[in-house]
Design a protein around this nucleic acid. Sequence first.
DNA 1: GCATGATCATGC
DNA 2: GCATGATCATGC
Length: 460
Amino acid sequence: MNYNPNDKDSIIQYARLLTGQTLRDACNKEILEHNYKGKGNFGQVLEKFYFEYEPNNESEPDFAFAGIELKSSPLKQLQNLEYRAKERLVLNIINYIDLINQDFETSGFYRKNACLLLVFYLHDSNLDIIDYIIKIVDEWSFTETDLAVIKKDWEFIRDKVRAGKAHELSEGDTFYLGACTKGQNSNSTRQQPNSQILAMQRAFSFKQSYVNHIIASIANESIGIYGKLILSAERAQAQTIEEIVIEKFAPYLGNTINQIIDKTNISLNPTAKSFYANLTNAILGIELDKKIEEFDKAEIIVRTVRLKENNLPCEDISFPTFKFEKIIKEEWIDSDFKDVLDHKFLFIFYQYEAKQLILKKAKFWNMPFEDIQEAENVWNETKRIVQSGNIVNKVISNRRFTNFPNKSFNAVAHVRPHAKNALDTYTLPVKDELTGTTEYTKHCFWLNSSYVRDEIYLKS
DNA sequence: GCATGATCATGC
DNA sequence: GCATGATCATGC
């Protein structure tokens, strides 16, 4: 070995030598050539052939004596050549049985991950993993403020498992630390305490955006201009992000938009671009040109909804368009639609009263388990329609009506166009039988306005 | 007044 | 040029 596995500085110095190299360059060539058979993942090869140890038991850090856990994770490169996390950073698998009897400070999660040695490599699907270029290597541990948020996330996950709801866990439940699914398919299940229902195997993980902030901090680079909601670790220990945000909204509930503008002492043009986003920033005390660090790290999707006097949103809630060719190749479990529904949302409701918009409610929300199953039905039906080649149901005065699941198909979501115009299309994998067209107006999934009213606005 | 098709406007 | 959040238009 070229380093001392019991000495933290020695481990980190040795790890840093990886920067700019590939595993093929950095590892002992004879050992690698004799033992690497083109199988395994990057992390395993890194452990075996660079650090030259066999993966150890699950509950202790990889370098137990030095208290360091080795983690490697892929990067992608943006058009402007900056690096971003390609995916979430997966930490230890959750043992549902053990978890419910733990406290955060003495938990397996914290013992194992309190100090991480991070190795980020540039992913390239054309290359063998031992030819990936390693870009960023450094030790990292939680800031005090983030640790307080993560502790609350961890406790939320533990308490849900305690309640016998491990099978209902969602990444949208929590802010920075998620319980991500781990395993090839929905057959990767485990027993859970306090329920007979088998639960998907899950692991603690940092959300992809959170990993970007880690990368920025260790690479000392900026990924944007941010304002903070939480100004001290003490605040993060005392209150959740949710409580802090709801508290900031409270003084403005019942106010008209003009009253909010007056109170926050900002100048906003109501017809301007990101008017509602600016108003939200003003209420939260964030400068208008800044992104909100905590929301970004937690991948919170903020949506402003205008309600009619009868509580029904003026519009349904849209999501990004899907590609017809892609959806037929996806499985639900790793589909884009499920991914977005596994996020945490902040809904901000304004309601028309006597033609004035009044701030009524700010609410954090993530889709309940049973509704995600409903959304799955919509997704499955959509995939089926695309595969069938029966997109168009009828054409009436040049308007083409489709067979995609509509509002009466499902109480949660439906599919509708979402395009620049009717000629803004994606290619169809199967030619449409009725019209013979090989491309179709871009569509997306929408949350039904009635669902938003009943399940998000009206439910306390 | 709702359901569904169609489109706008901004920012990256 | 396109993705995204938001909104308009038409017909029943």
